[in-house]
């Protein structure tokens, strides 16, 4: 898995436009959005809330289709949902009526892609890998938030997807669990080196995880700037004190702050004076 997975999963967006249709009008979500999710790397997408990050995930997963433009994976256009592109959702999306074990073997069972013995040994291996040994017979609602997220990881990993799509997966977890999950997820990625796209609105999380970091603008959304996060791997939380980390964080904060102000002006939550004041401060700083 470690070798083969890195060969696949390159996703390219070419001038993608998506719309949300309302009654007699429509809102443009993505506008001329072009980007690349490189294979074998962990790409993180950060952006202000409500900017269409989930839309990007849905496009790659095949739940939505672009209005204009193309989304290609390994050179081929994406057609509908498929086990090659799996999503770990915000909040829990395990099947609550199945036990932890049944959730993990769900996909191989319905697809008939593995023999029973293979499936069982692989599921047990993955459950042990994500630290859920002994919880096979528990229902998802009996697990803690962190454990649910790990079960979901195992459920996706058993398919050996070409790309893992993480849609703010650690949102809603408490701070401690969240940090643990980030470190855990990073270890898992560093071990497999498969293609990952991770979406978040938290800058610290983004820098900590990313090989490549894409900052999104506010609606209509495109990629504002791409960063190569050249912090050494394997990483741990001591990294947060390194100068490079702080440099990156400052730069990204600046970009996002600008977008956040634009967003609040656009939605009428702040008056234009605030934006003007912000511009003045920036001028003064230069």
């Amino acid at each position: 898995m470690a070798e083969s997975a890195t060969q696949y999963g390159e996703v390219i967006f070419k001038d993608v436009i998506t719309l949300v249709r309302l009654k007699d009008t429509h809102t443009v979500i993505l506008k001329d959005c072009s980007m690349t999710v490189e294979k074998g790397k962990l790409t993180v997408l950060v952006g202000p809330s409500g900017c269409g990050k989930t839309t990007v995930i849905n496009l790659i997963a095949g739940y939505e289709v672009p209005y204009r433009g193309e989304v290609l994976m390994d050179g081929k256009p994406i057609a509908g949902p498929n086990w090659e592109r799996l999503v770990v959702f915000q909040e829990m999306a395990l099947f609550p009526w199945l036990t932890c074990y049944e959730n993990v073997v769900f996909s191989p069972t319905v697809r008939g892609s593995m023999t029973k013995e293979e499936m069982h040994s692989e599921a047990m291996r993955l459950l042990e890998l994500v630290g859920l040994k002994g919880f096979e017979e528990k229902y998802p609602m009996q697990l803690s938030g962190g454990m649910q997220r790990r079960a979901e990881l195992a459920r996706a990993l058993i398919n050996q997807p070409k790309i893992m799509l993480m849609d703010e997966p650690f949102r809603g977890l408490d701070a401690m669990t969240r940090e643990l999950m980030q470190e855990y997820y990073l270890k898992l990625f560093e071990a497999t080196k498969s293609t990952n796209l991770f979406v978040t609105s938290e800058i610290e999380e983004a820098i900590f995880l990313a090989d490549k970091l894409l900052v999104m603008t506010n609606k209509p959304t495109k990629i504002k700037k791409a960063f190569d996060v050249d912090l050494p791997r394997p990483r741990d939380w001591k990294m947060a004190t390194s100068p490079r980390y702080r440099e990156l964080k400052a730069e990204i904060l600046e970009l996002l702050h600008e977008e956040a102000i634009k967003a609040s002006v656009a939605s009428g939550k702040a008056d234009v004076d605030l934006a003007a004041a912000y511009e003045r401060i920036r001028e003064a700083r230069k």
């Binding site: 949902p81 999503v87 099947f95 009526w97 996909s107 319905v110």
Partner: peptide, 27 residues
Amino acid sequence: VDIRLPRAGMSFGVSKAQLLFRIILPA
């Protein structure tokens, strides 16, 4: 039914009948 459940099911490769009997109806 929470839209994410059938979506997850579709990604995992369920057929139309399986979508109904294994996901929609239990949910």
